[in-house]
Amino acid sequence: MLTIHADSRGSALAVEGEAVVGAGDLAELADGYPRARVRRWPGILTPGFVNLHGTELLEEAYHPDPREADALGTEPLTGAALAALAPDDVRWGGSARRGVQRMLAHGTVAAACDPLRNRAVRDAVRRTGLDVVERQGRPGGVPSLDPFASGLPPRTPPARKTGSAACFAVFDVADEAELAERGASTCVATVIGGRLLYRRR
């Protein structure tokens, strides 16, 4: 189904399958695709973010299951706490899925990783649909689900245009300046390969 995604500024993307088939003003795209479904989002459409700390967040941190919150808390476990937990493959797979969901909730459309060594993590990440891009060495900064909190300039993919992959994120802010001020937790939707993988409830 062809869908036009529009933000509060009137910017829009026409998406069919996994690809962007049109980009521009909502009025122009609606005229060009009169049978398309129109989905209006609060805030702004963006290309989303590439989280530079994919390895640290997915393979070197354990994201507790909500049912483990009483014993483990809700924040990712690293270092000595992770070593003491010593997760097995089942736990690692579940952690990776939860970690990806938390990334998606911050508008992440791709994670930059060293080659993932843990098969359970690698398989779980592949099934989520999150794009994984290779990186050269550790990026520095502080691993964070919110790219604005990492201490590094947030990295974004190229702007979406006709023919590009339908990967983008929507943030409930007025503009890019407010996004930088309030952070990526303002994300309301993340789309990868034309699939709505996260929507804030």
Rank of each mutant, 00 (worst) to 15 (best):
R98E: 07
T162I: 04
R117N: 08
V109E: 09
M103V: 01
A112C: 07
R155D: 02
A124F: 01
R135H: 01
T128Y: 04
G73W: 13
V173A: 00
A83C: 12
R98N: 09
A166G: 11
F168Q: 02
G137I: 06
H63L: 08
A169P: 06
P64R: 14
D88E: 14
E56Q: 15
L145C: 05
T108P: 07
P153I: 03
A159M: 11
S150F: 08
A71N: 04
M103F: 06
P143G: 11
G151E: 10
P66N: 14
A81Q: 15
P147C: 00
K161C: 08
A84F: 15
E59C: 08
V142D: 12
R97A: 13
R119N: 04
G107D: 07
F148D: 02
G99E: 05
G163W: 09
A110Q: 06
A83V: 15
P87L: 13
D175H: 09
V132Q: 10
Q136S: 03
R135N: 01
A105F: 06
V100R: 06
L52Y: 03
T55C: 08
R119C: 02
P66R: 14
M103K: 04
V170S: 07
V50M: 05
P139S: 06
S144D: 15
A112R: 03
P115V: 09
G93K: 07
G140F: 01
G141R: 03
F49I: 07
A84P: 10
A69P: 05
L82M: 12
P143L: 02
L77E: 12
T162N: 08
T128I: 04
A80C: 08
R135M: 03
S150I: 04
T128G: 00
L72D: 12
G99I: 07
P115L: 07
E134T: 03
P66I: 11
V90Q: 13
A86C: 14
G151R: 03
G99R: 02
V100A: 11
D131G: 04
L85D: 09
P153N: 00
S95C: 11
R117L: 15
G93S: 13
F148P: 01
L72P: 08
P154K: 07
D131C: 09
A81T: 12
N118I: 11
D65R: 15
P153Q: 00
R138I: 00
Y62C: 14
N51L: 09
A96N: 05
F148K: 01
A111P: 01
P143K: 10
E60V: 04
L104C: 04
T128N: 00
T162F: 06
A96L: 00
H63I: 14
V100E: 00
P139M: 03
S95A: 13
P87N: 12
D146G: 01
R160L: 04
A112L: 02
R126G: 05
Y62R: 14
D175F: 06
A169T: 07
P139I: 03
G99P: 06
G107I: 02
D114C: 04
P64N: 11
R135E: 01
V133L: 10
A124Y: 02
V173H: 01
L57V: 10
A105H: 03
A69N: 04
V133A: 05
F168A: 10
R155M: 07
A120K: 05
G151D: 08
E134P: 00
S95Y: 07
D146L: 01
S150L: 02
R135V: 00
L116Q: 02
S144C: 13
G140L: 02
